[in-house]
Design a protein around this nucleic acid. Structure first.
Lengths: 126, 126
DNA sequence: AAATCTATTGACACAAATAGAATAGTATGC
DNA sequence: GCATACTATTCTATTTGTGTCAATAGATTT
């Protein structure tokens, strides 16, 4: 019954290493875009934010990788932090104009999928 | 702006070949389980059903592969149709007891993700 | 100066997705 | 009775995504 590939969360474990359904990682991109629209942040902060959103199982390197990928696509831009308070230099990411456009498309996707999921849940019960 | 990898639907195209967000395919498994709980069906019928559910961009081979994978895991079982009405022999899939259990886990996942998505949408607007 | 915390990157193995071709039976029109 | 179109499923090659772990590295605490 436990599953590897598409695996869903089996043991509630909160730290990355616990498995998650493919759904969780599917909304990582829009989640990051939304957080960056609210305000520019650096990766490490975003890590904490997505935990708050209930996506605690996602591994940090996945988040960093996604951020760099989105920068490559021009959805976000980053600069090295100047007044660094602690630790090594860190990238501050911010949403670009193109990123805002992409976010609108993502909003439609999320709405569409919200409907799909609620339709499915209705069908389980009724 | 168009995207390949995680790509989302760019041009509303209804036939497979049109792109979809990773979200769409993430709910293929539970969707199939739900449909098979309602009644046993064969792959080709399921293809049509998931189209009705709004997941029209998923390629047939993905559906067939997923069905066989779920059979390997013991979630569904198939038999060759006896009174075949048209075309070549076809597999009738049906949900197993284990499949019902898995579906319950999936229901929780869907509910959890429904909440995540509605939280995200709230954050976009407000 | 060693350990610990903050912060990011790189690399590798493996799982999954896409598209398209291959296979194959059935029904219809000519 | 043969070509064409439709139903139905499987296989394979290529690409992309995911998970995990190690590496790097500055800052702070002991």
């Amino acid at each position: 019954m436990p599953r590897h590939g598409r695996g869903w969360l089996m043991g509630e474990g909160s730290n990355y290493g616990g498995h998650h359904s493919p759904l969780t990682i599917s909304i990582l991109e829009p989640a990051l875009l939304i957080l960056l629209k609210e305000q520019p942040r650096h990766g490490y902060t975003l890590l904490g934010e997505i935990e708050t959103l209930g996506m605690s199982t996602i591994h940090p390197s996945v988040v960093y990788r996604t951020l760099r990928e989105m920068e490559r696509l021009g959805w976000v831009q980053s600069d090295w932090d100047i007044d660094q308070t602690q630790g090594p230099p860190r990238r501050i990411y911010r949403l670009t104009g193109q990123g805002e456009e992409v976010l609108q498309i993502w909003r439609c996707e999320l709405e569409k999928n919200q409907k799909m999921i609620s339709d499915l849940l209705k069908r389980i019960n009724g």
